[in-house]
C-alpha cells in the first residue's frame, strides 16, 4: 500500500513537472524561431510566410529527440530512488 501511494503521488508530481518542462521547452523553441525570422526578415511582424515558418519549425521540433528527452523526468527520479534503496539496504 505504501509503495502504491508512493507510485501514485510520485507519478502525479512528476507529471506536473513533465507538463511544465514541455511547455517551457516549446515556448523557448518558438521564441528562437521568431527571433530567427526577424533576423532574416527585418520588419516582418505577421505575414502568412512567418506563420508557416514557425509552424514548420515547431512540427520539426515535435518530431525531434528533444521532446522525448523530457521523459527523463520520469526515469531519473525512479533510478535515483532505486539507487538509494540499494545503497541504504544492500551496500
Amino acid at each position: 500500500m505504501g509503495l502504491i501511494r508512493l507510485l501514485v503521488f510520485g507519478f502525479l508530481g512528476l507529471s506536473i513537472a513533465y507538463l511544465a518542462i514541455s511547455f517551457y521547452s516549446r515556448s523557448i523553441r518558438k521564441e528562437k524561431l521568431e527571433d530567427r525570422w526577424v533576423e532574416d526578415h527585418p520588419g516582418d511582424g505577421d505575414s502568412p510566410e512567418r506563420e508557416a515558418f514557425i509552424h514548420d519549425g515547431m512540427v520539426e521540433y515535435q518530431s525531434g529527440i528533444r521532446p522525448k528527452l523530457i521523459l527523463l523526468v520520469y526515469v531519473i527520479p525512479a533510478l535515483a530512488a532505486l539507487l538509494l534503496l540499494y545503497l541504504i539496504n544492500f551496500f
Binding site: R5, A81, I88, N89
Partner: peptide, 15 residues
C-alpha cells in the same frame, strides 16, 4: 522508514 516519508527506503532495521 519503508516507502513513506522521509524517503530513505530503509528496510534493513534488523541488520
Amino acid at each position: 522508514t519503508g516507502w513513506s516519508w522521509p524517503p530513505y527506503f530503509k528496510f534493513d532495521t534488523a541488520n
